[in-house]
């Protein structure tokens, strides 16, 4: 018997037109076509989606949570990127 296994796929679903695809879960399948069919069967049995993306899990690159502090550090002290940073009179309208 072959030792090769069906690879793991990540499933992303657009729940309705106009919304982003969102990670729904994962499954094993021999190829992309089967992954999509299986995703339909397990993740959209109740009309949860109008579009499905699948991607083999091994193709996903992720950040390392241990490096989160330094990775996000550049954004940490830039409060001036937020509209609330600016002190303006209450009388100012439509801004």
């Amino acid at each position: 018997m072959s030792q090769e296994r069906w690879p793991l796929w990540e499933v992303f679903i657009r729940s309705k037109q106009g919304l982003d695809h969102k990670h729904a879960g994962s499954l094993h399948a021999a190829d992309a076509k089967m992954a999509i069919e299986n995703a339909r069967d397990v993740y959209t049995r109740r009309m949860e989606g109008v579009s499905i993306w699948v991607v083999e899990s091994r193709h996903i690159h992720a950040t390392n949570p241990d490096e989160a502090a330094s990775l996000y550090d550049p954004a940490n002290d830039k409060v001036y990127r937020h509209p609330t940073f600016y002190d303006l009179p209450d009388e100012l309208k439509h801004m």
Partner: peptide, 16 residues
């Protein structure tokens, strides 16, 4: 179900 799993892999390999 073992033969189904193997056949699906073989088919996917051939398609590739």
């Amino acid at each position: 179900g073992a033969w189904v799993r193997e056949a699906a892999l073989a088919y996917a390999g051939k398609k590739r």
